[in-house]
Design a protein around this nucleic acid. Sequence first.
DNA 1: AGAAAAACTTAATCTAGATTAAGAAATAAA
DNA 2: TTTATTTCTTAATCTAGATTAAGTTTTTCT
Lengths: 191, 191
Amino acid sequence: MIESLKNHILRFVNPSKKEIEDFLNIIELENIPAKHYILKEGHYCNYNHFIVKGCFRSFFINKKGIEKTINFGIEDWWLTDFDSFMNRTQTQLNIQATEDAIVLKVSKTKLDTILQNSLEINKYFRIILERVRIADQRRIQYMFNLSGEELYNTFYEYNPEFVQRIPQYMLASYLGFTPEFLSKIRAKKHL
Amino acid sequence: MIESLKNHILRFVNPSKKEIEDFLNIIELENIPAKHYILKEGHYCNYNHFIVKGCFRSFFINKKGIEKTINFGIEDWWLTDFDSFMNRTQTQLNIQATEDAIVLKVSKTKLDTILQNSLEINKYFRIILERVRIADQRRIQYMFNLSGEELYNTFYEYNPEFVQRIPQYMLASYLGFTPEFLSKIRAKKHL
DNA sequence: AGAAAAACTTAATCTAGATTAAGAAATAAA
DNA sequence: TTTATTTCTTAATCTAGATTAAGTTTTTCT
């Protein structure tokens, strides 16, 4: 189980045996059944989660009471609310498993002790965050540049298997429009 | 000049004298007159820029030929196109000074040699990127949740002085709507 | 100071996507 | 294998913001 995280780390950096063992020692394994939450609005986000298996969505509830999905996470992704995690504030986010899942989680306090001294683990998270930044920027760029229909087509093109994996209304929300509109787009595509 | 970067680093991490000197030694100073570019579409982004003074915007040109501002940067911010910087790809972005500016820039190759060995500089950039991630997530959340008018009011509330500093059409573009619509919002506010 | 360029405003018209509502399919649960 | 719950579709109506176009104000340059 923990091998998948180890492999992920070794794809990016070259820690010593001790360095990686120290890190892996603070990791906790958790099974999350579908629909269960690993973070709920109003709570403090004390963990960063590495997804071994399964799929999650993070969403918040807007003033009209509608759920807005702002991110998905699948295998080999880290998932947390950095704002709450770093600044020790109450989160506005919910993070929910969309299918049965397995995560490796690390608490803020334990992670901090590792990051205090480990060059390679710092590198690892720096590199992960650089990649996240690229993805975020690309997403913002797409949101500005593309119509709803184009957003869907682009997403489908790059993530065809993932589209099957989640309910349509979640994808609609992630792309920034209503499920009704997504239905309309799909109807148009099929004839 | 380089003091401002030094101070910024010391706000987040505690490098040894040698560690910070080694880093500062690879930094180059550059003056950028208003309207000049530090990055142009189609080029390779070989530098990360720390803004000592002035203001920049990064934008791309969409298919309709319209400039879309996706970020601003002011004093004490790092500015680059990470996608191009990390992946050595041609950038789609333009980064332009909106006023006379001074930057400290560091090349990818030199930065890499520092990041190879320096714990504290890795920490520094990791922390910066965590903060950037928080800002990006918040921005995405706002874009989904708020109407154009609310986006403007929120931005104005948190950055009143900055609104004066840039042309309105750039702000409109950054917020995701047209300058005409921003004019309408402002007209409504004033009576 | 005067001309040119850049930035901003106003108003009429148009459209992508939201909203509302009701029914149909598909999944899950009992 | 029936019932309940969740998800998806269709269609009519509505609206925030885009587009177009023309005029005005402000800034920059010579």
